[in-house]
Amino acid sequence: MEYHVNGKTIPADEEGYITNLADWDKDVALEIAKSEGIEMDDERWEVVNFLRDYYDEYQIAPAVRVLIKAIKKSMGPEKGNNKYLYELFPYGPAKQACKIAGLPKPTGCV
């Protein structure tokens, strides 16, 4: 699988996760989001940017429980909960948001 963004071809695995983290930028994120049927807005960007910062710090893409706990700690309980995050990313906040953020598939996600 691959994405075509601004005249570049971005390789991805069979599930749509890009294979080289350095290929990611906001345009790539928008293309991945479009392929997932997601319209990026401020709330979704907030989660995607949070995930990228988390990955920079810990070198791992968090599973959903860890993600919810980290967002709750950082942004408060109104955003750090299952309901809110699943509304933003219906196919799984960790899985789908990590894909859009250009990160590897989170550990523990099937």
Rank of each mutant, 00 (worst) to 15 (best):
M1G: 12
M1N: 12
E2P: 03
E2G: 08
E2I: 05
V5A: 14
N6M: 06
N6F: 04
G7V: 08
K8A: 09
T9H: 08
T9A: 08
I10W: 10
I10C: 07
P11L: 12
E14Y: 14
E14L: 13
E14A: 14
E14G: 10
E15W: 06
E15P: 00
E15R: 15
G16Y: 04
Y17P: 00
Y17N: 06
I18F: 02
I18A: 04
N20I: 11
L21M: 14
L21E: 12
A22I: 07
A22M: 05
A22H: 11
A22L: 04
A22D: 12
D23M: 04
D23L: 04
W24K: 12
W24F: 08
W24A: 06
W24N: 11
D25K: 09
K26C: 01
D27I: 02
D27V: 04
A29T: 10
E31I: 01
E31M: 09
A33Y: 10
K34V: 05
K34W: 09
S35I: 02
E36V: 05
E36Q: 15
G37A: 09
I38T: 14
M40A: 06
D41N: 09
D41H: 03
D41C: 02
E43M: 01
E43N: 07
E43P: 00
R44L: 01
W45H: 03
E46K: 04
V47R: 09
V48G: 07
V48D: 07
N49Q: 08
N49E: 10
N49H: 11
F50Q: 11
L51D: 09
L51A: 08
R52K: 10
D53Y: 07
Y54M: 00
Y54C: 00
Y54E: 00
Y55N: 13
Y55Q: 13
D56Y: 06
D56K: 14
E57V: 08
Y58S: 03
Q59K: 15
P62L: 06
A63Y: 13
A63T: 08
R65S: 15
R65G: 14
V66C: 01
L67I: 08
L67S: 11
I68E: 02
I68P: 01
A70S: 12
A70R: 11
A70H: 07
K73I: 05
K73T: 15
S74N: 09
S74R: 15
M75E: 13
P77D: 04
P77W: 03
P77A: 06
E78K: 14
E78R: 13
K79P: 01
Y84S: 07
L85N: 00
Y86W: 15
Y86N: 15
Y86P: 00
E87N: 15
L88D: 01
L88H: 03
F89V: 02
P90W: 04
Y91G: 11
G92Y: 03
P93T: 05
K95F: 02
K95P: 00
Q96D: 06
Q96V: 07
K99F: 06
K99S: 11
I100Y: 07
G102T: 08
G102M: 05
L103D: 04
L103R: 10
P104N: 11
K105D: 02
P106H: 13
C109R: 13
C109K: 12
V110T: 13
